[in-house]
């Protein structure tokens, strides 16, 4: 089996496990879990929102690790993984912002709340979107890889600073706490969905890295005319 087939199967398996877990977890969250006392049924959004939040952060952390690995150890595979993690991270953080505003509307009566976590996610969404744009504007593969890795490190280091600055900035408002997702009846759908989202994320990164690898190979390969002349 070639490396490419291997990563295809691995990604597909991750995706399948993740989707099954997400279906089961969402069934638990929507139909089985009891109604929360104060938040009512709206609290059920948490079963998909919180797992997305954890995994979006995890995905950006993975991007940071891949970027450091590329700069220190080198190797195109880290660049391909970085490309995958960047795109999936932007996808998840964008999704998180949408979920967050759907959550904010019935609970606080507004579409956006300047909660430090949600705001940090929005800032990171745009920061990492900029890095994806950077990748598409640089043609030389080596330059693209190095610059994207540098920009990823610079942006990731900003996460705690943005978080604290928004927190202080918004400290006059009452800190809005999440509803209680700590009692045992709420654990199971939350954890099932968290693992489901984790597998979906891993599958997406694997498959996207495989796509990046194939594109890169086509770009690095000598033009077809040269190959034909040589053979």
């Amino acid at each position: 089996m070639t490396r490419e087939e291997k990563s295809g199967r691995l990604g597909g398996a991750f995706l399948l496990i993740g989707v099954l877990l997400l279906l089961f977890g969402s069934y638990l969250g929507l139909a089985v879990a009891p109604r929360e006392r104060f938040m009512g049924d709206v609290q059920r959004i948490m079963y998909v929102h919180v797992p997305t939040a954890w995994n979006a952060m995890l995905c950006l952390t993975a991007a940071f690790v891949f970027a450091v690995a590329y700069l220190w150890k080198g190797g195109w595979r880290w660049d391909c993984r970085l490309e995958g993690a960047l795109e999936v991270g932007v996808l998840l953080s964008g999704l998180l912002c949408v979920q967050g505003s759907i959550w904010a509307r019935p609970t606080w009566g507004v579409w956006w709340d300047w909660d430090p976590r949600l705001t940090t996610t929005a800032v990171m969404f745009f920061a990492f979107l900029g890095i994806i744009a950077l990748r598409s504007f640089v043609d030389d593969p080596a330059q693209r890889a190095t610059w994207a890795a540098v920009a990823t490190i610079v942006a990731y280091v900003d996460v705690p600073i943005v978080y604290f600055s928004v927190r202080w900035w918004n400290s006059l408002h009452q800190m809005q706490s999440s509803p209680a997702t700590v009692s045992p009846a709420f654990y199971l759908p939350l954890r099932t969905n968290a693992f489901g989202m984790l597998f979906v994320m891993a599958g997406f990164i694997t498959l996207r890295a495989r796509l990046a690898r194939r594109r890169l190979a086509a770009q690095l390969a000598p033009p077809p005319a040269l190959t034909r002349a040589a053979s």
Partner: peptide, 19 residues
């Protein structure tokens, strides 16, 4: 207590699944 709000729940799950 917030009552109802199922449309927001469906919207959140639907957007996630669609994305």
């Amino acid at each position: 207590v917030i009552t109802g709000g199922w449309e927001y729940v469906w919207a959140a799950y639907g957007v996630t699944a669609a994305v």
